[in-house]
Design a protein around this nucleic acid. Structure first.
Lengths: 246, 246
DNA sequence: ACGCTAATGTCAGTAGCTGACAGTTGACAA
DNA sequence: TTGTCAACTGTCAGCTACTGACATTAGCGT
């Protein structure tokens, strides 16, 4: 079978391949719709396959688990991040490149998932993932795998041996940790569900990363930057970048 | 029933309470033994309850899931971390306190889990968690909950409003991200399974955090510290602390 | 048109987990 | 000591996610 997570992007040639692609996309779309309306746990696999008119066995040949179909959309988005990072100019500093890859990735979310579902539905899916323990669990584990991949890319960019220099992994872990935290806060109460709100929140926390690790929080030093670390009071991206990274 | 995760610590008074405690400890110990010898997936709940001589229904009254019994031991250890953090002197900087809480927590691991199992078995359990997808998933999600708790403690320590200042969450996210990364690397191939190896690795990556976020990796600045960021070449803890934190 | 093989469907079964209800056993007062 | 109550446990029936084995269908190249 070899579905290969390339859900969109390359257009398959033969009828067989196109059918496969369609079935997979259908399953994802229908699953997402059911999940976001009824809730993840309240939706059974049987309901999904009934709507798409395939057997349950077929479902499990496309997706390893029920979680898998919910997180497939995340894979697409994270894939976009990684691709963005890979194509950043090499003269950029590692943290700068990471930040740019993230913002670019979110900016292009529309194109990334256009074959599957509209952006609003995808953001609803993200909210659902954040608020569904089983999904959040699997999501985070997958994220940690991507993290390792990113660390390798960063190490290579800087010409460092990832096993001998701890900085690539440390930096990536810190950034990804902050990313997770931002997603968590966004998924919580009192926040807009829009992509813009999520990116804004992410940037706020990313901006706070460097100040938070430098100096005494109660006196000078970090204080100036700290003023810009208030969520919902979004500073100019370029300035923040100047302050935070080299 | 209200078993309440206080597995050890307070000694219950009545016979009933003691029996409950014993059953719970037995289930944990036997589960851990079976998991570490046969593997997590290869062990069924039926096997566990048969060995402890209780019904399956009883098992699920003590532990919400099969994952739960494997991660119960982790809860104990993480609880110790949080307690350590709570009792750090308030004049310590936040990152210093976090670091100290972690090292202290690992140093006291023996006492923390003495009622359940020997340290070696617990470390085996940690390795198993790192290498078992389902467990790692659940482990990480629980960790993110602890993270929020820690962030609140840190914010309070520094007298900051966690919703208005992003630094507490950012700093905690970064440190916890690095912790996870260290655990991940430790769980991978080519590392000792001892507590000492884990703490050493954790400190190495924690030491690399600040240098990794500051300056250009390819030139001066971080280079001096970078030399000390080589795993298995452990620098003096006190020095590292001086360099890294204020 | 025809054989090959990828893809799908059917069936039977396992494991994790839950609700309902009945039986047992500590706790505590009379 | 005894009896009552409440906590705890066991049994059973059932649901859902997931898997292996094998038969069936349907694109693909010749």
């Amino acid at each position: 079978m070899s579905v290969g997570q390339g859900t969109a992007a390359e257009r398959p040639t033969g009828l067989r391949a196109r059918k496969k692609q369609r079935t997979r996309d259908d399953l994802m779309r229908v699953a997402l719709q059911l999940f976001t309306t009824q809730g993840y746990e309240a939706t059974t696999v049987d309901e999904i396959v009934e709507a798409v008119e395939v057997s349950q066995r077929t479902f499990f040949r496309y997706f390893a688990s029920k979680e898998d179909v919910a997180l497939a959309i995340v894979s697409l988005v994270e894939g976009q991040f990684v691709e963005q990072l890979r194509t950043r100019p090499p003269e950029e500093g590692p943290l700068c490149a990471l930040r740019a890859a993230i913002t670019e990735g979110w900016a292009r979310i529309g194109e990334t998932i256009e074959d599957i579902a509209p952006v609003e539905l995808v953001m609803k899916a993200y909210q659902m993932i954040e608020s569904t323990p089983a999904l959040l669990s699997a999501h985070m584990r997958r994220g940690s795998e991507t993290e390792e991949e990113i660390a390798r890319i960063v190490a290579e960019r800087e010409g460092l041996d990832i096993e001998r220099d701890a900085r690539p992994r440390a930096a990536v872990a810190a950034v990804c940790g902050v990313l997770r935290m931002a997603g968590r806060v966004w998924g919580g109460p009192g926040h807009e569900t829009s992509v813009e709100a999520l990116t804004a929140l992410t940037e706020t926390y990313l901006d706070a990363l460097h100040p938070s690790l430098a100096g005494d929080w109660r006196t000078a030093d970090g204080a100036a930057e700290a003023a810009t670390c208030v969520p919902d009071t979004r500073p100019s991206a370029s300035l923040a970048q100047d302050v935070t990274f080299t």
